[in-house]
Design a protein around this nucleic acid. Sequence first.
RNA 1: GCGCUUGUAGCUCAGCUGGAUAGAGCAUCGGCCUUCUAAGCCGAGGGUCGCAGGUUCGACUCCUGCCAAGCGUACCA
Length: 586
Amino acid sequence: MKQKLESLLLHAVEALKTEAVIARELNPKINIERARDQQHGDFASNLAMMLAKPAKMNPRQLAEKIVALLPADTSVTKVEIAGPGFINFFIDPNAQYQIITHIHEQGDKFGLSQVGAGKKVQVEFVSANPTGPLHVGHGRGAVYGSAVADLLTAVGFDVQREYYVNDAGRQMDILATSVWLRYLEECGEVLTFPSNGYRGDYIREIAAKLHRESNNEYRHTVDLVFEDIPADEHQGGDKERHIDALIVRAKTLLGDKQYRDVFQAGLTEILADIRHDLSDFGVDYQQWFSERQLMDDGSIDEALARLREAGHLYEKEGAIWFASSKLGDEKDRVVIRDNGQSTYFASDIAYHMNKLDRGFEQIINIWGADHHGYIPRVKAAMQALGADPEKLKVLLVQFAVLYRGGEKVQMSTRSGSFVTLRQLRSEVGQDAARFFYAMRKSEQHMDFDLKLATSKTNENPVFYVQYAHARICSVLRQLAEKELQRDIQAGEVSLDKLTEEQEINLVSSLTRYPEVLERAALQHEPHLLINYLRELAAEFHAYYNAHQFIVEDAGLRNARLNLITAVKQVLANGLNLLRINTPEVM
RNA sequence: GCGCUUGUAGCUCAGCUGGAUAGAGCAUCGGCCUUCUAAGCCGAGGGUCGCAGGUUCGACUCCUGCCAAGCGUACCA
């Protein structure tokens, strides 16, 4: 309908040109919007206001001229000029009603489109360090990322979802060492656990399992392990130096092979846990990309070689630096430390080179907001590798600040004091958790009160939408109980009987669904879809309370049933897309 | 200090990429179940859109400057 009006206005613009009202070279962008207020019709255009200046006319006069030049169309019943010069279009309700039949024909395909057809897009999200179970902070990125990916798929993009596994680096060494120390405790050794180690109970579980399967082969005496290790923080020392020394000690006492075993035991266990957790939450990936693989297969060396060839690397104070400040970053960055080890950033350069080589037209990274300072250097790296930095789109997700009854909950993976995503899912429920996370704009700081979410689950808006769906199902069950048959064709020919205010609102909302989906996808804003579903549900509930669907008049009854089953279909399509259940009974 | 994000009703948040009288939920108050599920509906109150300028037919939306909050500003990942 929008496109139709657009072509009508385009005709009028051409006519204005022939009449020399506006210059021939002028190609105004035709803006058509849905009117916010019903008094303003169904659609409105601000064309006259935009052309008023170049045409040197007052907008209302120009609007009249445009309207006069508008070709006639049967689906447009009235065109009005209002306010400062808006052109308002009133659409024939009968033309709008066709959407109901259309929805029934399309079924679960209704709303899908092909605007992204043929375009390969990658969405990388969550990518939390595998040092512990996912906590509620990761949940937001998980839902947002998967929803963005699903939306892009729905509008035709070829989407690849990926999790970048940071299975290398110091954090992982701290994890491995933590596992080992707990393992020693399992063996019967008594020790003081480092304050900077991972203290969560899951570490003990991994250690216990390793102990059961290992037969004490990784055991060393505490005296040997802690011999000459610098003091920990609570002993008046430095916790970083303490843990680093313990890592070195673990590597020397265990040797490469055994250290690797312990390291792998922790990594495998935690990664499997993360994978299951996400999968249960409706979040799946095509690929789990290993950072260590980049080191092992020479990708980092290759990426750095490419940068060196292009003249972007230099040496200073024993380290190798990437001259990112020349490409928009605020300062240069180290890629090889003075001890010869590559930095995390070097891995990331290699990782992004790899993404580019895989031929994605767009690369979407979903990061926690604390990584925002990282964006310029990655874009600089892409540019230095000869790629268009615009290919990379980084979407930031703000932290969810957790409250429990007004009290802020402090979280830290290291100390083991955090609320896991799994806990949240079981407390507030899968659907509510997904809905709640997706409900807010990603860049909005979010307050998440656990007490509120858990104690008053009935007030969660997800139930409101699901309830609309269940109610429609219930009406259909009632129909059967009253031994009435639904006659879809009889409904179709009687659609013009749908003249109530709520019916007109619903039909108008149904026609909006494909537009909402496309916008939500292209702008990476799943919350738009949520808002839409809430509005549609609200209109349905209002309708439900105002009118009876199962009425004597068979034509009206079937027309109404056609309408509400169309509503049910759209609610289901939207909820399914968000991977939220569509209960038939509540 | 500099940079990114945010600031809208008592609280939590929308606001269709510059449009017409700024909306919803919760909370408060008042109504609606012998008729398809009251996890619902109808209504009332509640606002200097952080502050001050600017851009234009028109600004919550764009620009500038302040103020406040969060985050960042590593040879950590």
